[in-house]
């Protein structure tokens, strides 16, 4: 399954999704997403599921089912847009509360066995320094999201983003 998270105001499916396979789940903003409040409810109350019932409480499960995680986001200071960031923040039920050590750093253990390809398409007026930061961010996110490979693309304009799936 492909999981596509985007913050586009106008989503043109014909341009963005070229794959003939009908297996893409799309996460978009509805203006109602609540920020993660770091309550650990997804670990110690309803393991694997967020306790904030706003329609974005199943993100851990969607991450578990996907093999390709595709993100389209405006770039702010080398990070994602607040909405896309919020979706990723709310995805921690995908992980376990337990820690493991990788390359000398602690990270959360994985609840699921799936491995993903993480592709991030950043758009906007992005400086070279911000591009460098964004590349580091996506690679770090890849480590924490069990990504086998990560790819980062930059676009000046939204209309240049095509066929991401």
């Amino acid at each position: 399954m492909n999981l596509l998270i985007h913050d586009l105001k106008e989503f043109n499916q014909d341009i963005l999704i070229k794959s003939s396979q009908n297996d893409t789940v799309i996460i978009a903003g509805n203006g109602k997403i609540h920020p993660c409040i770091c309550c650990f409810g997804c670990w110690i109350k309803t393991p694997g599921q967020c306790i904030i019932k706003d329609g974005y409480d199943n993100l851990g499960l969607l991450h578990a089912r996907c093999s390709r995680l595709i993100i389209i986001s405006q770039c702010f200071y080398g990070s994602y847009s607040p909405f896309v960031h919020n979706v990723l923040d709310r995805s921690i039920p995908y992980l376990l509360p337990y820690f493991s050590t990788k390359n000398g750093e602690t990270h959360h253990k994985f609840r699921y066995d799936n491995k993903i390809v993480l592709k991030v398409h950043f758009y906007g007026n992005i400086s070279d320094k911000e591009k460098e930061t964004a590349g580091k961010l996506v690679r770090a996110n890849g480590v924490n999201h069990h990504a086998q490979e990560t790819e980062v693309y930059f676009y000046d304009k939204v209309k240049d983003i095509q066929g991401v799936v």
Partner: peptide, 29 residues
Amino acid sequence: WKIMAHNTFRHPLASKNKLTKKDIVSKIM
């Protein structure tokens, strides 16, 4: 620190919600 985080922090909090160690690592599919 890791032992403390696993055993002192996570487990008692989950136990209060009547969750076992197995529940904590459960997969929802």
